[in-house]
């Protein structure tokens, strides 16, 4: 099965690395993957996004126009991507900073106060993206948590490995927020 996902937010919120980590974890689980970033002037105005495809078969197009999952961390991204979630798909939005909630009713909408939770409960807003990723795999079961940890170990430079436990905590917090929340 092919899962088409888009991650979008301000540059610096870690949307590109979130997508990369997920793709890497899926690759480690033996699946086919692609990761396509926005670059150049698209990034201007501070909004970045990446499209991640995960599939059991060879991936046809690395870009898409409709998505199974959209993760949006700022308002411009919500505006851009709410309408392109496939009916029945999943939309995760950052609800502690986006003040205009999504309006669609034919998709599964998950409000996630990721920034607030990361800064209050983890005392580090930088791992907000890991929290979101945790929530996503909590909702969708795309990859195993363990694979995400392997991905962190493989892709983070050695000198940053001391941050892995914090990232793991963020992933777990994200997962727990979606299992207890709704």
């Amino acid at each position: 099965m092919l899962q088409e996902m888009v991650f979008a937010g301000f540059g610096g919120q870690g949307v590109l690395s979130m997508g990369k980590l997920l793709a890497y974890a899926a690759m480690k689980e033996g699946r086919e993957i692609s990761w396509m970033p926005s670059y150049g002037p698209e990034m201007r105005g501070g909004t970045a996004n990446c499209v991640v495809n995960i599939s059991d078969e060879r991936i046809a197009s690395p870009v898409g126009s409709m998505f199974d999952v959209a993760v949006v961390l700022n308002l411009p991204s919500l505006h851009k991507f709410e309408s392109v979630v496939k009916p029945g798909g999943v939309l995760i939005w950052e609800s502690s900073t986006i003040k205009e909630p999504p309006t669609r009713t034919d998709i599964n909408v998950h409000a996630l106060p990721a920034i607030e939770k990361a800064s209050n409960e983890l005392k580090n807003v930088k791992v907000m993206n890991m929290l979101v990723l945790g929530a996503l795999v909590g909702i969708m079961d795309i990859v195993k948590k363990e694979s995400l940890i392997v991905a962190l170990e493989d892709t983070l430079p050695k000198r940053h490995h001391k941050l892995i436990p914090l990232n793991e905590k963020a992933i777990e917090l994200g997962m727990s927020l979606v299992s207890s929340g709704a």
Binding site: A23, S34, W35, P37, P62
Partner: peptide, 10 residues
């Protein structure tokens, strides 16, 4: 092209 240059795959 730029898209294949920038994209990541296995």
């Amino acid at each position: 092209d730029g898209s294949i240059g920038q994209m990541m795959e296995k």
